Amino acid sequence: MPVAEAVTALVALARPVAVAAMPPAEAVGAVAARDVAVETGLPGARTALRDGWAVEAAAVVGASPYVPVRLARAPAWVEAGDPLPPGTDALLPPEAIGADPREIEAETAPGEGTRAPGTELPAGARLVAAGERVTPLHALALAAAGLDRVTVRRPHLRLLAAAPDTLSPLLGAWIAARGGTAEVVPRPAEADALAAVLARPGADAVLVIGGTGPGRRDAGADALARAGRLHAHGLALRPGESAGFGTAGDRLVLLLPGRPDACLVAWLALGRPLLAALSGAAADPPVILPLTRKVASVIGLTEVVFLRRVAAGAEPLGGAEIPLHRLALADAALLVPPAHEGYPAGTPVEVLPL
């Protein structure tokens, strides 16, 4: 099956997971389920941005150490974040007051050193949009707006891996970075036992790592067919030809090859779109970099090339059968469409950050 066709079919099967409300700090990394906007502008009154003396700017025009301006009463001292006293609209630095606290030795402009009412978080300002991943800065703004809960979608994926398991920690980290959670469960070797595990509830999707090829002990495709429905097995993808997907109950199941390069390629091609569909995530902005060397590809297959981002652009490291010592250098990947024979050096291409 062509990769584009497989992704379309897979995403059509996926449904966004149920929303959950959680504190902003706990929501970081998850995808916002709806727009969040400020209802009432903040601050409610003019506040100090730094420590200083609160004055009316018009009352100290022309003040200097040589020609101080004498006020009827000494100005009030305010700390950063405090509201300004009535009748004041600006701040003077600590050294602006002479020996007599009523004598002002510096002038200031209206609003200097202060935040006007409703300008820190204006009424109606959108703090996070539906489909955006909540960032630490989003959480800061949400907490400052007094919002103790934000509704997000955070898919939970179950990873089935056989020992020795070296891939689930990496996949789990990638899943967490894109707003999901992951649990690791041992993968049974026999088809019946694996089918029983696939049928267990409690996950939004299941990843079967390894056992997906034509080997005599590879039971992934057979087990998925027994547990539900095998929608596709075998993709026009290099590496990752033995990847597949299907359904078991109300859960989507991905079959990922066990070899590291093929597993990671299948995750990039199928897993990332699946996770985005489950979380309701908006499309990521494209990352375009020039290739530092040419890339050759086979017509008719979607070929994935691992890249290392350098000052000059994206350096190709290898694709199918890339050795682990080079794969470990990668921080991005390129999906070469099946109609392309590759790209010459210097070609700007869209890359997927890892």
Score class of each variant (00 low, 15 high):
84 L>C: 03
148 D>W: 09
308 R>Q: 15
285 P>C: 07
243 A>F: 07
114 T>Q: 04
179 G>I: 00
143 A>Q: 13
20 A>I: 13
151 T>K: 06
131 G>H: 09
321 E>W: 13
192 D>I: 01
117 P>T: 03
285 P>V: 12
221 A>L: 09
209 I>V: 13
227 A>K: 06
281 A>P: 02
92 L>Q: 01
127 L>F: 05
183 E>N: 06
74 A>P: 04
178 R>A: 06
52 G>W: 02
293 R>V: 04
82 D>C: 11
22 M>E: 00
262 A>K: 00
35 D>A: 14
308 R>V: 10
289 L>M: 04
48 A>H: 02
88 T>R: 03
202 G>C: 05
196 A>H: 02
25 A>Y: 10
88 T>H: 03
106 A>I: 04
237 L>W: 06
30 A>E: 05
2 P>V: 07
100 D>H: 08
300 G>M: 08
12 A>V: 11
39 E>M: 09
185 V>L: 10
326 R>S: 10
350 E>Y: 09
19 V>A: 08
118 G>D: 11
304 V>K: 07
124 G>V: 00
54 A>I: 10
340 H>D: 12
162 A>S: 11
10 L>Y: 14
106 A>Y: 08
149 R>T: 12
180 G>Q: 07
27 A>H: 01
86 P>I: 09
239 P>C: 11
42 L>M: 14
215 G>D: 06
207 L>S: 11
235 L>G: 00
10 L>E: 09
83 P>N: 08
162 A>Q: 07
104 I>D: 00
96 A>P: 10
286 P>A: 15
67 V>M: 14
183 E>H: 07
230 L>V: 02
19 V>Q: 15
326 R>T: 04
134 V>L: 14
285 P>M: 12
174 W>G: 12
320 A>H: 15
282 A>M: 14
290 P>H: 05
205 A>T: 12
159 L>Q: 14
67 V>R: 15
205 A>C: 09
327 L>N: 04
188 P>M: 05
249 G>R: 04
58 A>N: 06
170 L>M: 14
276 A>W: 07
249 G>F: 00
59 A>R: 13
118 G>E: 09
204 D>K: 05
347 T>V: 12
127 L>Y: 04
337 P>D: 07
349 V>D: 01
22 M>R: 13
248 A>M: 06
305 V>K: 08
187 R>F: 05
231 H>I: 13
218 D>W: 02
232 A>D: 01
